[in-house]
Design a protein around this nucleic acid. Sequence first.
DNA 1: TCGTTTCTGTAAACCGATTTAATTGCTGCA
DNA 2: TGCAGCAATTAAATCGGTTTACAGAAACGA
Lengths: 361, 361
Amino acid sequence: MTRDRPYSGRAPTIRDVAAQAGVSTATVSNVLNASGRASAKTEEKVLATIAALNFRPNGNAASLRNRRSRLIGLIVPTITNAFFAHMASALENLAGASGYDIVIVTSDEDPSRERERVLALLARQIEGLIVYPSADTSIGAGLDARMLPPSVVMDRGLGIAGFDTVGLDNEAAGHMAGRSLAELGHRDIAVLIPDIALAASRDRALGAERALREAGGRYECRVIVAGQTIDGARNALEQELHRDHRVSAVIAATNVATLGAIKAIQGLQLAMPRDISLIGFDDFAWMTAMRPFVSAVAQPIDSLASSAWDLLMTRMAERAANAATPAAPQRLIFAGELRLRESSGRVMDTKGRQASFPHKA
Amino acid sequence: MTRDRPYSGRAPTIRDVAAQAGVSTATVSNVLNASGRASAKTEEKVLATIAALNFRPNGNAASLRNRRSRLIGLIVPTITNAFFAHMASALENLAGASGYDIVIVTSDEDPSRERERVLALLARQIEGLIVYPSADTSIGAGLDARMLPPSVVMDRGLGIAGFDTVGLDNEAAGHMAGRSLAELGHRDIAVLIPDIALAASRDRALGAERALREAGGRYECRVIVAGQTIDGARNALEQELHRDHRVSAVIAATNVATLGAIKAIQGLQLAMPRDISLIGFDDFAWMTAMRPFVSAVAQPIDSLASSAWDLLMTRMAERAANAATPAAPQRLIFAGELRLRESSGRVMDTKGRQASFPHKA
DNA sequence: TCGTTTCTGTAAACCGATTTAATTGCTGCA
DNA sequence: TGCAGCAATTAAATCGGTTTACAGAAACGA
């Protein structure tokens, strides 16, 4: 035998509690919601039966009646990327403090999957949505603001009209990295980005290029589109470094690209910053666990999260108040922070490096 | 002006569709659920109005009536730990394939918070639960199997009675690492674990010690309890290495501890594996991005996830069938895989290392 | 031709909570 | 004594779907 009673049919409902306590369901509901409508004596009695029956209200039923799910959707490309994991965690904390739950879903960078996931969230009656869109042009492959609850778009889709937006100043962040390298004498830079179609990536590359341009003289800024995987980034950079021996510095525009770049550089037996400099993006613990410590542009995750949250709450309040004229969509842009460490340094001549390539060219 | 219509009151319901299409709600429901009960002509008509009104069913209402939420809860200590993020991702994929959604909540290693989160999940009528408990003795600080939907306990709580369990063979995994080090001649080993109260940690340490014991002769296996943070692990190991100069190898029992250990070793200017050997746990991309590549015991995340999922589905089917005598709880244990890389090597005498400590002792 | 299936379709109950409007029973006061 | 005012309580409607039980019509078999 495994348990005293097999599985005791249904969970108790508010009706069971009411019957047992000898009151109406309305009264039970009142004490549940602490509306102060019940007398102390009744309240005590009801509370006692609730405890005795081990009753817990069915949130779905309440949600149906209330039209309030206390649920916020968060859609990210993948939760295995540390940046999104940290963002999710920050948002979860903010949500918890306001009595909301967050349901995280992943799009795998696929707009049609994103659409499907968003639709699933809608069916669950989410009250708000925070999205890292997988494409810049729309949420969920063309879902309209009218079909969505209050939503804020993060980072990538800075251009999607009609939505509040929060993100990094990507152009400036790229510029920061580029300028730092330019000041160290680098004029031949490769920028590793996941996807040319993503404005965030593109802007980081554009910023880097502007920095080189502003430095004056000749320069070459090679943008390498490397996909969303570590190995993709690694292979793309390895090929590039084989092809062009003049590249003396790399900017990796995401944390995934940063890892790929490091692997490529290690694999080629190049030393940072002697043979090649690297500035990565996002800043996680492993970046200061390896030698050399890797320089990187950090995103202010907590600020991004809390302003996204505030924006969302404001918008939800507005809609709840049934505002006739909603405020114009806001756009909050945060600066990245360049954390200069050991992987980026003064440019050296690259003869030594060329010698280390055993191939014909 | 912002939009043509302000915010058009309520979303359309199945009643709106029924009225507009000139049928009953039952018929609409039938075509929604493709029960084949409607004629082709009616179905077409209904589908057309659904599209015209942009109707999407309220999942909460369906869920209330069906007693099926298609929701599975997953509770992990923190989603920012790469191991849990990967586990969550694997589970999400499995769930998606079966038409379930997963809602991930975090306990922050705090049993009372865990309880609160589980209760919130219950209120949302989850049909199943997968838990990495924050303490070994129970789920949600004492929640009883009778109060929970079908649940599987992961890894840490291998001892919680009455639940299906899947996890790593922690003792064997620790033994693997310990034996490898013993074969390389190490006899003084430190094992960095997050928490002595967690059986998983303890077992890894115990396994390591057994390996040393079996190697014969004198040995010292020092278990260092270092908490759940990278810096905690780092500080604890730094202190230990200062205190005891004979320690020639470290086993870091989690990925967090591994990162902390690397930082400590780097900070002390020790070289791996010359001055000290390291075997970490869990295996993520950054472990092969740094030099030396770090040796580690990898967990078979996909196998763990899919057997947890299968177990859960089986149990849910059993309960749905209202089985009088549920099958006895299962316990699935998987072997870890030791990936020997560069951070662990033959023991050397430690004179050189002692010289690198500038302190008095 | 009549009884029996088979198809389509619907009215109404139902899931489990919340909320509104009404009711009951007191207390207080003129 | 009569009635307003208030506190405590409840019956019933409601949220938006699904499902059951039943009805009418068409098809079928003998």
